[in-house]
Design a protein around this nucleic acid. Structure first.
Lengths: 362, 362
DNA sequence: CATAATATTGAATCCCGCA
DNA sequence: GTGCGGGATTCAATATTAT
């Protein structure tokens, strides 16, 4: 073990996370953001339906022999993080179903106090190409205080402002890191397989630190945490093992122009437009399975199935496709074409039920 | 331990979950939904996993002494669930940040194979009154197969249809159980503190079971799982320790009117439809020997042989292998790749002839 | 130049029956 | 068990090329 470092602020420390963490002084940082390897353990190759190859994470740093090995790794770096964290500090740890249950359980076992689990809902996730599972459309962040007695920081009002003056919820809708934000090499290939969106770190840092405070990232990668921290007037400590990633991070951080202090305010969040599937009306019993639907002239009548399928003679499918089929039209808006046979013997257009449901959840 | 029970279908078994589970025969249910007690670390009303109250929570309360107790409880009932679950069955386990990391880690440690974690996004969550955390607006469901080799059921097409013909994602937006759905006593107070919405169970059951299959709920409460299962034409086994809850569940289940079979059936995916060999279409003269097939862009043309083989230059074989060969692709679905040259000079995809033939023989 | 059509891509534990 | 081969399977956001 090397000598204890003075607190190395606003630097990217290149080296093994655990070794570097051990050299940092205790109780010295206000917050930690950690995006550790996920232990994906992918087997073969995966192709899209058009036969193109999916470029998965097959890097050496993500390979662990088994779950106990991964747990030992997790507990080792979390132990050092807890030592380095100030008494009132909080930690964010991020993962997916492969590893996040190990992370959360380790945090609890080690005496951290979970404050929230937060869901990053991806606006544009990769689909499930083989149709064998649900689209893996989110990742999980666990937010925890150093211990139950921590007087932790939570910038409640900033979060509320960021969310159009409504309390920030535990589910965050944020796009993947693509486009200009995604770092690429000379050949145009992504520099890092799992670069996180700056919007995610913006929210994390805004919620749990104040300007001038120190945030540590033990798995810095290409520097998202540090870049956002610098822009928002926070101090950072980044640790990254791969010299190539560390160099890219340094260049990226150097290019960041810190915001003027007055601008350290909230950016408006991208609002999500409400969308409602017909199946949801079925699920919720607003248009129960077994209901009869007709067109306005009652030329056709169809039955609603448990999954929101419509059956009309031999035609089966969505409200749109069955509407198109019976009319022998190329397409059809099922919401306005189909009507529910009401108990009073009348017809009520499907779209009215949708509007009702949307209004109820707004 | 009591004697082994014959499989008690469509019954609410009143008793301790673990004891009753131990009396069920092995490998007998298709799916399990479990919403276990969360009672963890709730200051003031701390309860043990056996639901007894913990007296005098002192400041020196040792979490290391109590989390293992919860873990032991978790592993005990999960062990029995795994025994009772059929080889190809799946389990849904539900929790919040207090306990879900313990649940997920236990599932992995015991050899279950996680398929997805699913987020129930609450439309109308309780706000955080103190403004010290994010609004706790979701709960987590872990969906897992009995083991990595399980050929588990996932009704992909039903989920897709339910979601307006787009792949179902891992984040589900569903309102809390309120209004007329919420069971209440004579005084108008809610009967059960954590009654789950039927819409949630509708989706769980539709995704992972078929009509006639058996779903087990070891913590039935007031019977949401059983009521939805019955309505959807599934069989159920419910276990509930509290006689009051069990009685309420029985009354609720008895009032359920099962859907007619036509509505309870979901749209089958193509994988589940009866197979039809291309040669049969040739035999029946729907695509006579000698027909010319082309891809959609008419880049390649092939001739149909009497036995359903395709010839395109030197490539000979099935519609799939020739399609793959001409494109130099690793694989190809010949049904959607090849088109028949119609007498009108147009192209009609081969799959349309198959669907026609399948409809004719149904 | 503007708009439209086409191509690319993302933390992924991604098939299944039959011989 | 393993191997073979039929044939099932994708969404949203950018970027690039074509009209």
């Amino acid at each position: 073990m090397g000598t204890l470092l003075d607190l190395p602020l606003d630097e990217v420390l290149c080296g093994d996370s655990l070794e570097v963490l051990r050299r940092l002084p205790p109780a010295s940082v206000h917050a930690i953001f950690a995006d550790p390897p996920y232990n994906l353990q992918l087997k073969g190759t995966l192709r899209r339906p058009d036969d193109s190859l999916v470029d998965g994470v097959d890097d050496e740093w993500d390979r662990f022999a088994d779950l106990p090995t991964y747990d030992a790794f997790t507990r080792a770096w979390l132990t050092e993080c807890r030592r380095v964290l100030r008494r009132d500090g909080t930690i964010w740890v991020m993962g997916a179903y492969h590893n996040v249950f190990r992370l959360g359980a380790a945090l609890q076992d080690m005496g951290f106090w979970i404050l929230n689990d937060v869901i990053w809902r991806k606006a544009n996730p990769m689909p499930n190409f083989r149709g064998r599972r649900f689209t893996n459309a989110h990742e999980t962040l666990v937010w925890a205080a150093r211990d139950p007695a921590s007087k932790y920081r939570f910038n409640y009002q900033a979060m509320k402002t960021l969310n159009d003056d409504t309390q920030m919820r535990s589910d965050w809708y944020i796009p993947l890191c693509t486009g200009h934000e995604r770092l690429r090499d000379a050949a145009g290939d992504k520099l890092h397989p799992t670069q996180k969106p700056e919007a995610l770190l913006h929210r994390v840092i805004l919620a749990s630190t104040n300007a001038g405070e120190i945030i540590l990232d033990p798995f810095l990668g290409t520097g998202t945490t540090a870049a956002v921290a610098r822009r928002m007037g926070r101090r950072f400590i980044g640790i990254e093992r791969d010299p190539g990633y560390a160099a890219a991070a340094r260049a990226r951080i150097a290019a960041v122009v810190p915001l003027p202090e007055s601008a350290a305010l909230a950016l408006p969040s991208k609002r999500e437009q409400p969308r409602l599937a017909f199946g949801v009306l079925v699920e919720r019993g607003l248009v129960p399975p077994g209901s009869r639907l007709s067109d306005r002239q009652r030329r056709w009548s169809a039955e609603v199935g448990v999954d929101g399928t419509l059956r009309c003679g031999t035609a089966t499918g969505s409200i749109h496709s069955v509407g198109a089929a019976v009319q022998e039209a190329p397409s059809c808006n099922g919401w306005t074409f189909w009507h529910v046979e009401t108990s009073g013997g009348g017809l009520r257009v499907l779209d009215a039920y949708r509007e009702e449901a949307l209004a109820a959840q707004a």
